[in-house]
Nucleic acid binder design. Structure first.
Lengths: 87, 87
DNA sequence: AATCCGTTTAGAAGATTACCTAATTATCTA
DNA sequence: TAGATAATTAGGTAATCTTCTAAACGGATT
């Protein structure tokens, strides 16, 4: 959960999540959306994966990334609890 | 919004928000909950304030901090949107 | 098996963050 | 106004983060 919050702190990583919300994408496709080298994007993907916000799956030469909503839902719960009136 | 996500990345700062959810507190009271110097806590409070996650108000010698749920609600919206099925 | 393509790993530079101690500011009280 | 208390600001250091280039890796194709 701490890893998730840390991963979410970076705007590039949040943008990657938004992209993956639309559809699954390969690492290269994701990288094409940013003015940044592929190794840098790969690092961000690893950070998101470590936080379990995304999952990956090899498909031939490509590695396809997709959103894992489980941890996102947990985070959502944290925020919901925070704006709850009592206790 | 980016400032809020960055502020939320630190566990001490999230814990401060949890404390302030229960009741408003002075900077000193907040600091008493952590094994950390007051200047360090003051730095964290400033970070949270800058992100508009909390507001402060002087009351005599004390400065009372309280939660500002507006930005928390915005973040909640971000997560909600992220787990939404389409669009 | 040689090579190509997509991707990750390694290593390093520069920026940012988190924490400390010391000094300063603001307010209250005697 | 002098002293005490609450909190912040200043300055410094160590650790972490973001990004880059160069090199290595895993499958697919020839």
């Amino acid at each position: 959960m701490n890893d998730a919050f840390k991963a979410l702190a970076d705007p590039t990583r949040r943008q990657i999540l938004v992209l993956l919300k639309e559809r699954d994408m390969s690492a290269g496709e994701i990288a094409d959306h940013f003015a940044m080298t592929k190794p840098s994007i790969s690092h961000h993907l690893n950070s998101l994966k470590h936080a379990q916000l995304i999952v990956d799956q090899r498909q031939g030469q490509n590695i396809i990334y997709s959103l894992n909503t489980t941890v996102i839902q947990e985070a959502l719960g944290w925020f919901l609890n925070m704006i709850q009136k009592d206790k």
